[in-house]
Simulated assay, not measured.
Amino acid sequence: MVAKTNILFILNPKSGKTSPLNIPDLLNRYLDAQQFTYDLVHTAYAGHATELAQQGARAGYPIIGAIGGDGTVNEVARGLLDTETVLAILPKGSGNGLARHLGIPMNIRHAISIINEKHFSAIDTCTINEHPFFCTAGIGFDAYISSIFANNTKRGLQTYVRLVLQEFSKFRPQEAVLELNEQQLKTTVFVVAFANASQYGNNAHIAPKADIRDGLLDVCLIRDLDFRKAINLSLGMLTKRIAAGSSAEYFTTTAIDVTSEQNFKFHADGEYVGEASHFYVNIKPLSLRVIHPKGK
């Protein structure tokens, strides 16, 4: 008799709209009991998912599942870097950037069926000032919005869009120096997005050509925006045609330094991290194993 694979699921009970009480029922009904058994633990505070993932990897769980949004996925993935343990994602947030990039269904029942297929591969991971990220990180306006969003009691796409519209006219670009590929670029910065995957989440593609397995960062520089350009840029993100417009410039690199006389706010996978005047962003090829649909 073949031994079953035991999965540790880490659930953020504050993510999404689905009651945590529904998760065990969904797992019991749709996770293949011929292949798997599982344990389910809940997070209690920021950073707890990383601790639980590290403990699970040390305990020998071959698969650890993140049940939550981008922040939960980031925390669990951080705990699995450079281990043999495979990450599974059951998306339960508002953006779900990594899940969407990998083609994982937003419906949890269907996402469980992907785990049943047990297909996985390695993907690249990145750090910004030694803080790991897996989809995107950034400085400038997107990080500024993330800092406000983090303290907002209402979550979700509607709140995010409202904040963007509310704060757009207040934000002022800052001067910075970008060093990459043995070149130095002094510029104003509205946004610099560092993309491992193609999108922020919600199918907003900031770097449509990003390949999560090519060993390269896609860097998107937006120097300045007026309202008209911002509308066109937003439409370009939603239609994957942002690179065809004139507002965004793209570079590929394995590492980038950004320095400024003033602090920039910065985010990693949409979660506000803090402020700094110097950023070092780099990529670590194929350093995380992830379950995903075949062909993705």
Score class of each variant (00 low, 15 high):
Leu11Val: 15
Leu11Ser: 10
Pro13Val: 14
Thr18His: 01
Asn22Val: 10
Asn22Ser: 12
Pro24Tyr: 05
Pro24Phe: 07
Gln34Asp: 15
Thr37Pro: 14
Asp39Leu: 10
Ala46Met: 13
Thr50Lys: 13
Gln54Thr: 15
Ile63Asn: 03
Ile67Glu: 00
Gly68Leu: 06
Gly69Asp: 08
Asn74Gln: 06
Asn74Thr: 09
Glu75Cys: 09
Ala77Asn: 10
Arg78Leu: 04
Leu80Trp: 01
Leu81Gln: 12
Leu81Trp: 01
Asp82Arg: 08
Glu84Thr: 15
Thr85Leu: 06
Leu87Glu: 03
Leu90Glu: 01
Leu98Asp: 05
His101Arg: 01
His101Glu: 13
Gly103His: 00
Ile104Cys: 00
Pro105Arg: 00
Pro105Asn: 00
Met106Gln: 14
Ser113Pro: 03
Ile114Lys: 08
Ile123His: 00
Thr127Lys: 04
Ile128Pro: 03
Phe133Ile: 07
Phe134Ser: 04
Phe134Leu: 05
Thr136Asp: 04
Ala137Arg: 04
Asn151Phe: 02
Val161Asp: 05
Arg162Trp: 09
Phe168Thr: 13
Phe168Gly: 13
Pro173Tyr: 01
Gln174Val: 03
Val177Tyr: 02
Lys186Trp: 07
Phe194Asn: 09
Ala195Arg: 07
Ala197Phe: 02
Gln199Ser: 11
Asn203Leu: 07
His205Pro: 01
Asp226Leu: 09
Phe227Trp: 15
Arg228Cys: 13
Ile231Gly: 03
Ile231Leu: 15
Ala244Gly: 10
Thr254Ala: 11
Ile256Asp: 07
Val258Trp: 06
His267Pro: 03
His267Ile: 09
Ala268Ser: 13
Asp269Ile: 07
Gly270Asp: 06
Val273Asn: 00
His278Leu: 06
Ile283Cys: 07
Leu288Gly: 04
Lys294Trp: 02
